[in-house]
Simulated assay, not measured.
Amino acid sequence: MLDTSNAVATTVEWQTTLIPGDIVRFAFPIRNAGPGMSAKPRPCLVLEVRTINGHRCAWLGYGTSATTTSNQGYELRVNHPADMQKCGLEKPTRFVCGRCVLVLLDCPDFLMCKETGSPVIGRLSGSLVTRLVRLVGFVKPDLDDVFARLRGSDIWGPVAIQVHRHNRRGRASHLSGSVR
């Protein structure tokens, strides 16, 4: 799923240059993890980057190469070889924007590439960027609510954001957030 040999040019200061559409290596939290279960390294799509309480944060979408019906909702698929190469992916990958986490950019769950010193492995381009803008637009009003609730609070772990249902207007009718 990850191709770390073709990472985009990045700088040591990746935290200041991270933008929506970047693909990063991240140990995504496991839902309902049992004893001895740890987060799995996977590609994640940067959906948005913001500053909250003076800290830069990223909203990351879950990436998977699985073709099952689980983890569906607001998907962005990268399956053309040229797109996969630009994104730093070895396998066709679905980014599920309905399953995401909000993390501080200094979170230790970002997995650095030895070659670049950065977790950034690639970037969306062309029509995939247009699709990303559209997907983010569907859940952005509710994401704004989560950001507003976090303002003034002390964030010390990833905040899991799960979009559960959507009404006819495309807005999430329920959005939950919890600190791990």
Rank of each mutant, 00 (worst) to 15 (best):
D109L: 12
L175M: 15
C44D: 07
R165G: 12
A27V: 01
P29K: 05
R180N: 14
G36M: 09
V24W: 09
N167M: 07
G137I: 00
V163R: 08
A172N: 10
G36E: 08
L135Q: 06
F26N: 08
C97A: 12
R168V: 14
E48G: 10
S5D: 13
V78Q: 01
V8C: 10
P108K: 13
P92Y: 04
E75S: 10
G117H: 07
I19Q: 15
R165E: 15
R131Y: 04
L60V: 01
S127H: 10
P158N: 12
L143K: 05
N6W: 01
I121V: 15
T16G: 08
V24C: 09
P35M: 10
G21L: 09
G98C: 09
P35R: 11
I23F: 01
R134Y: 02
A39Y: 05
F26R: 03
D109S: 15
G54N: 11
I19P: 00
V133G: 05
N53K: 05
G21I: 03
G21P: 02
R171T: 05
Q15C: 09
V103T: 15
M1R: 04
G61L: 01
V146I: 15
V120H: 02
T130V: 12
G88H: 11
D145C: 09
D3P: 02
E75H: 08
L124N: 03
L132K: 04
R151M: 13
L2T: 14
I121S: 08
M37P: 02
D109R: 15
M1I: 05
Q15F: 04
D3T: 03
L76M: 07
L124D: 05
T11C: 00
T69R: 13
R42L: 09
D154V: 14
L60H: 07
Q85R: 14
A39P: 13
V96E: 05
R31Y: 08
P20G: 09
T4Y: 02
R171H: 12
T11L: 04
V163I: 15
E75P: 01
Q162A: 12
K86V: 00
P29C: 05
V46R: 02
V163C: 11
T69L: 14
Y74K: 13
R94E: 00
G61D: 03
L102A: 09
G117Y: 06
T17R: 12
G177P: 04
T51H: 13
R180E: 11
H55M: 12
Q85F: 12
G61K: 03
N53W: 03
V24M: 09
R50M: 07
T67Y: 04
F138L: 14
T17M: 08
R25P: 03
A148M: 05
T11Q: 11
G137E: 06
C100R: 14
D145E: 15
V179P: 03
V24E: 06
N32F: 14
T17Q: 09
T16H: 14
G73Q: 01
I161K: 10
N53M: 04
I30C: 11
V120D: 02
L47N: 05
S153N: 04
G36T: 06
V101K: 00
T116P: 11
R123Q: 11
L60D: 06
D145A: 14
W59N: 02
G137P: 09
D154S: 13
R168H: 14
R151A: 14
P92L: 07
S125C: 01
L76I: 11
